[in-house]
Every structure is written in structure tokens, then in C-alpha cells.
Design a protein around this nucleic acid. Structure first.
Length: 323
DNA sequence: CATCAGGGCCCTG
DNA sequence: CAGGGCCCTGAT
């Protein structure tokens, strides 16, 4: 496969609403690694397919948590016109949740017994919908009923078959494909990529996007309950995927209807130092403590333990992560 | 070696 | 609303 070289560059300074934690916003240590992005301290790269153009985004940290500044470099094959860029920037700001104001959250729980210490480290962190809704759905599908290695394998297989390789900032990364590519592929072919029963989901969803039946821009504006119903209509999306979608793609910080089994075990340990606390209790307690911020609060606690895992071995945690 | 649940979801009855 | 089937893999 030919690598697309993205040699044209356009740079712009972005100003996230403080507080803003660069590294913990762009990089989520709990996520499995994906070849479409790359993170190192103060720097983040990701590929993007926008209006038919293959792009490489490079973000550099040029500020602090309280005075954030981000340098964005958009890399492309050909020179981009003004209109294209003018359209693209707000989309990037949405995807990386730069204009969200979480000041109240960070202030209100400064002295919270559980959140306080975590906020000290990670204040200014937000969830990010780094990929388009279509792309995120693909990721959630490969997460279903699979251990990490298998999810990674499935994603790699589809990237290799349908994605392109793009090179920018001296790195070669994978890029997603337009939905049209897969809508025309037979389910058999997809199954050969070891996608299993998910092949049907991926095909159906690709077709829906091609027909314009799913409009993520409209969905962003919907009240949560309407959005919830809209998501559940999507073939292959049930309660588990919905949970991720509403938080990570649409930033609904108070939405918790379910907790995945392995997450339940980890949260039981972290919040109660117990083996298994019922999902209902975890949700109820989180609601009482953090109210409309409850899911964001859990996100902080969750990612914090995975940051810790990077430099020290946590035996009980290793057992719960199904590699 | 076989059997089975699982970081779900769909479909049927 | 309950339960079977599905791609696979690791646990028993």
C-alpha cells in the first residue's frame, strides 16, 4: 500500500478554556493503542479524514493548565483553501472538547475526599471524541465481547484492508476510510478479517452513514433523552456501547445507565475497596456525591489509576484487564 | 481433550 | 422479559 505524504502545513494557535490539561485530555491511558494516533508528553498526533481529504493533525502544548495554549498544525497533501480550514477548525475544537467549561467541576470538588487528590493531578482533563462518530462506532463494535488483544487485532485488520497510511511529522499512521468503502463490501469479506458477528454491524452502519441516516452534527444538539433513543436505533448499539457513546462522543457528563462488568470490578475496588459492589449502588452513590458531574468524576478516577499503572505495577488491576 | 462464559447485541417466542 | 445464537479466546 502506498503511503500518502502530507507535506503541506498550516498552523494555528488554539485557546482552550481553562483549566485545560493537555496530556490527560489528548491521551487516555485506559484505551487500547490504535495506529491512527500517537502521543508523547506535550505532543499528540492523529489522522483525520474530513470531507474527502486525508489530514494529519499535530497538537503541541504551548501553555499551562491555567493558561492553556495549543499549537495545531494541519498537514495535508495539497494546499488547503481558506473555506475548508474555516470549517475544519470548529470541528477540531469540538472533537477535542476545547471550548468546554469545566471550571465549576474542578472548583466544586477540590476538597472532595475521593476526587480532591485526583483533581490535584488531572484538573482540566476532558473526554474527547478524537474520531468521527462513524469511526468511534467501529471502535465500539470491535470492543464488544473481546479481550484487548482481539480488539486490537480486529482494528488492525480493517485498517490494513480499507484504511490508508499517511505520513506526517516523521510518523506513519493509519487513517480511517470513508463509510462508502465498506458499504460496498460483502459481509463474507468482512468476516474474513476476523470481525465475527460484528461484520454485519459494521456493514449496516456504513450503509446508514452513506445514506445520511445518521447525522452526528444534529445529534450533538439533541437533548440527552432524544439522543439516547437515536443511538439505540443504530444496529449493533446496545446499552454498553450507548454508555461510551453518550460520554465520550457527546459529552453528557451525567449519563450513567450501566457499567461494564470489568469496570464494575475496578470501580468497586477503587471506590469501596471491595470485590464487587452492585452497579445500582455505584451509580446511586456517584449521583449523590457528584450529581450532574458524576460520569466526568468517574472518568477522572478511572484514568488516574491507568496513569499510575504506567509507572508502577498494580497487581489487582492487571488481573481485571483482560489482555 | 471438551466445555463455557464473556469488555454485547439481535432476534424469537 | 427470558433465553438462544454468534466470532473468538482464555479459563477450568
Amino acid at each position: 500500500m502506498r503511503t500518502i505524504k502530507l507535506n503541506q502545513k498550516y498552523s494555528v494557535a488554539l485557546a482552550p478554556i481553562p483549566p485545560f490539561n493537555f496530556d490527560a485530555t489528548f491521551h487516555k491511558p485506559s484505551h487500547f493503542p490504535s495506529s491512527d494516533c500517537h502521543w508523547e508528553k506535550d505532543k499528540y498526533l492523529i489522522t483525520m479524514l474530513w470531507r474527502g481529504k486525508y489530514l494529519g493533525l499535530k497538537f503541541g502544548n504551548k501553555g499551562t493548565v491555567s493558561r492553556p495554549k495549543v499549537k495545531l498544525t494541519i498537514c495535508s497533501q495539497k494546499l488547503l483553501d481558506k473555506k475548508f480550514i474555516k470549517n475544519l477548525i470548529p470541528e477540531i475544537e469540538w472533537r477535542f472538547n476545547l471550548q468546554d467549561d469545566i471550571c465549576e467541576f474542578c472548583k466544586r470538588f477540590r476538597n472532595d475526599k475521593i476526587l480532591g487528590p485526583v483533581l490535584k493531578k488531572w484538573k482540566g482533563t476532558r473526554p474527547v471524541a478524537a474520531n468521527s462518530f462513524y469511526e468511534t462506532l467501529i471502535i465500539y463494535f470491535v470492543l464488544q465481547n473481546a479481550v484487548v488483544r482481539r480488539s486490537v487485532q480486529m482494528l488492525k485488520n480493517i485498517f490494513n484492508r480499507f484504511g490508508k497510511k499517511v505520513k506526517f511529522d516523521n510518523k506513519t499512521l493509519s487513517s480511517f476510510w470513508p463509510p462508502k468503502t465498506i458499504s460496498k463490501i460483502s459481509e463474507r469479506t468482512l468476516r474474513d478479517l476476523k470481525l465475527g458477528y460484528r461484520a454485519k454491524f459494521i456493514k449496516r452502519v456504513s450503509e446508514q452513514f452513506v445514506k445520511g441516516e445518521i447525522d452526528e452534527f444534529k445529534m450533538r444538539q439533541m437533548p440527552t433523552e432524544e439522543l439516547r433513543k437515536e443511538c439505540l436505533k443504530i444496529y449493533g448499539v446496545g446499552p454498553a456501547s450507548l454508555q461510551y457513546i453518550l460520554f465520550e462522543d457527546f459529552y453528557r457528563y451525567d449519563f450513567i445507565e450501566t457499567i461494564a462488568p470489568w469496570e464494575q470490578k475496578i470501580l468497586s475496588k477503587l471506590l469501596y475497596n471491595k470485590k464487587l459492589v452492585s452497579i445500582e449502588k455505584i451509580i446511586k452513590d456517584a449521583d449523590k456525591r457528584w450529581g450532574k458531574w458524576k460520569n466526568l468524576a468517574l472518568h477522572y478516577i478511572w484514568e488516574d489509576i491507568f496513569w499510575q499503572r504506567r509507572h508502577k505495577k498494580i497487581d489487582w488491576l492487571e488481573k481485571e484487564i483482560r489482555l
